[in-house]
Design a binder for these strands. Structure first.
Lengths: 129, 129
DNA sequence: TTCATTAGTTCTGTAAATAAGAACAATGGA
DNA sequence: TCCATTGTTCTTATTTACAGAACTAATGAA
C-alpha cells in the first residue's frame, strides 16, 4: 500500500484547519487525539457520536483530518495508528489548536452538565482544599 | 422589514463558529470587522478577495456569519452596519476568536511577504533599537 | 406621489460536497 | 490457502454552495 499523504506544516491554511474541524464528529475525534499521547485506531471512534458512524463515513473523516494536516496516520499491521500533529501546528499557528480544543471541551462539559443538572456546590466530594 | 435574527451567545457552538470561518472570504470579512471598532457595510467587502464577489454570494456569507453568532447586523438607512461580536464570544469561548484572527492575519502576512520576497535583514529601516 | 438610485435579499438552476451501503484491498493468523 | 479484521474506494442519493436574475427596502429628487 502506498504511504499516506501528509501535507507539510507550511502548506496548512487557517481556513483548511477550520473546515476540517467544523464537523462535530471530526472535532470530537481530533480533541480526543489531541488529549492523548497514544495513537488510536480509526475503529476506536465508531461510537464517538450519539449514534454509530458507518465506517466508510469515518474513513472519509480521517482522510479530511489527515489532508488538512491535523493528524498523522500510519499503518501498523492491520490497523491505522492516528496521532494529532498539535506540536507542529502550534509552531505554525500559535495558540490556535489549543483554543479550539479548549472551547470544544468546555462545550462538551456544558452539554453533560445540562443533561444531568446539579445544584451549585453539591459536587460529589466538594471542593478539594 | 423584519428585524434580523441573531442567536444568543449561549446558543453558539464551536463547530458552528468554525464552519462560518472555514471559508476564505468569510474569515477575511470577519478578521477585518474584528480588527476595527467601526461598523462596515456589506458592499465595502465586494473586493475583499482577489476577484470581485457577486453581491448575492456576499449576502449569503453575511447571513452565515450572522446566524453563526459572529457578527451583528442592523440596517441604518439604505445600508447594513455590521460589527463583530468578539467581546461576547470571548466570554463564551475564551481565546478562541482571537487565536483564529491572529492566525489568519499571520497567514495574510506570510502571503504578502512571499508575493514580493525580500532578503533577511533588509527591511526598509532595519530593526528598531 | 412618482420615479430613480443605492444596498441587500430571495429565487432558481447548476455545480460541488457529503453520507453511507456495497464491494474491494491489505495485513496477519490458523 | 482460507479467514477475520481494518480500512478504502465505488456509487448513488441527498445536501449544500455559487451566482445570475428578479425582487424589496430606504432615501432623495422632481
Amino acid at each position: 500500500m502506498r504511504p499516506l499523504f501528509h501535507p507539510s506544516v507550511e502548506d496548512l491554511t487557517v481556513e483548511g484547519v477550520l473546515h476540517a474541524l467544523s464537523d462535530p464528529v471530526r472535532v470530537a475525534i481530533f480533541a480526543r487525539l489531541a488529549g492523548s499521547p497514544c495513537s488510536q485506531s480509526c475503529s476506536s471512534f465508531l461510537k464517538i457520536s450519539d449514534k454509530d458512524i458507518p465506517k466508510s463515513t469515518l474513513s472519509q473523516h480521517f482522510k479530511i483530518l489527515r489532508e488538512a494536516g491535523l493528524i498523522r496516520a500510519e499503518r501498523h499491521g492491520v490497523e491505522m495508528q492516528n496521532t494529532s500533529r498539535c506540536a507542529e501546528i502550534e509552531k505554525r499557528f500559535p495558540g490556535l489548536i489549543s483554543a479550539i480544543v479548549r472551547a470544544f471541551n468546555a462545550q462538551m462539559e456544558e452539554k453533560t452538565n445540562q443533561a444531568k443538572p446539579r445544584k451549585r456546590g453539591t459536587s460529589p466530594r466538594g471542593r478539594k482544599k
